[in-house]
Simulated assay, not measured.
Amino acid sequence: MTTSASRKTRQKDAVWQALRAQDDFVSAQDLYTVLNDSGSHIGLATVYRQLSALHLSGNLDCIEHGGVRLYRICAAQRRHHHHLVCESCGRTVEITPPDGGWLDSVAQAYGFTVSSHTLEVYGLCGDCQAAPVEQ
C-alpha cells in the first residue's frame, strides 16, 4: 500500500486489511459491516473517507454497479486496466485496455487532450445470459 503524504492510522490499517480479505468488489456499507462485525468499531463516514483516499492514491479500483460505488484491490494494481461488469450478478473481469493511440486520436479529433480516463464496460456475463428469465 502506498500512502505518500498520508499518515498511518488504525482506521486506515483496518480498512486496508478488510479490503485485502475481500475477493470481489465491496461497497462502503458492506465493508463497514465487515469491520464492525470483526470488532473494528469504525464509523461509516470514516470508511467512506478511507476508501476515497485509497482510490485517489491509486491503491483501489472503483466501479459503479446498481447505483452503488464498489471498491476492490485489483490483481492488476498499479497497471492500467479496465473492467467488464455484469449488470445482473456484478461479476467483474479485468481487461487489457485498447491501444492508447486510439483514445488520443479520438480526443484530438474533438479538440481534447487526455489527462486521465476510466473505462468500465457493462453488459451480461455468460452465466446470466444463459439463466432462465424470471417472470
Rank of each mutant, 00 (worst) to 15 (best):
T2R: 14
T2D: 00
T2Q: 10
T3P: 05
T3Y: 14
A5G: 14
S6V: 07
R7C: 02
K8R: 15
K8H: 14
T9L: 06
R10E: 03
R10H: 04
Q11N: 14
Q11P: 02
W16I: 10
L19T: 01
R20K: 15
A21I: 07
A21V: 06
Q22R: 15
D23N: 15
D23Y: 07
D23S: 15
D23M: 13
F25Q: 12
F25I: 08
V26I: 15
A28T: 09
A28L: 08
D30E: 15
L31A: 01
L31M: 02
Y32T: 05
V34E: 09
V34Y: 01
N36G: 06
N36Q: 12
N36D: 07
D37L: 08
S38A: 15
S40Q: 14
H41D: 01
I42L: 05
I42T: 04
G43R: 13
A45V: 14
V47K: 11
L51D: 02
S52E: 13
A53E: 15
H55V: 01
S57T: 08
S57V: 01
C62M: 03
I63N: 01
I63A: 02
E64N: 08
E64K: 03
E64W: 08
H65D: 09
G66T: 02
R69E: 04
R69T: 00
L70R: 06
L70V: 03
L70W: 01
I73M: 10
I73K: 09
C74L: 05
C74Q: 13
C74I: 07
A75M: 01
A75L: 04
Q77E: 06
R79Q: 07
H83A: 02
V85A: 04
C86K: 03
S88P: 01
V93M: 09
T96K: 13
T96I: 11
P97A: 08
P98T: 14
G101T: 00
W102Q: 13
V106S: 08
V106E: 13
Q108Y: 11
A109H: 12
Y110M: 05
Y110R: 06
Y110H: 11
F112G: 11
V114K: 00
S115H: 15
S115E: 15
S116F: 12
S116P: 00
H117G: 00
H117Y: 14
T118E: 14
T118C: 02
T118Q: 13
L119K: 06
G123T: 02
C125K: 03
C125G: 05
C125E: 01
G126P: 10
C128N: 05
A130E: 08
Q135Y: 12
Q135V: 08
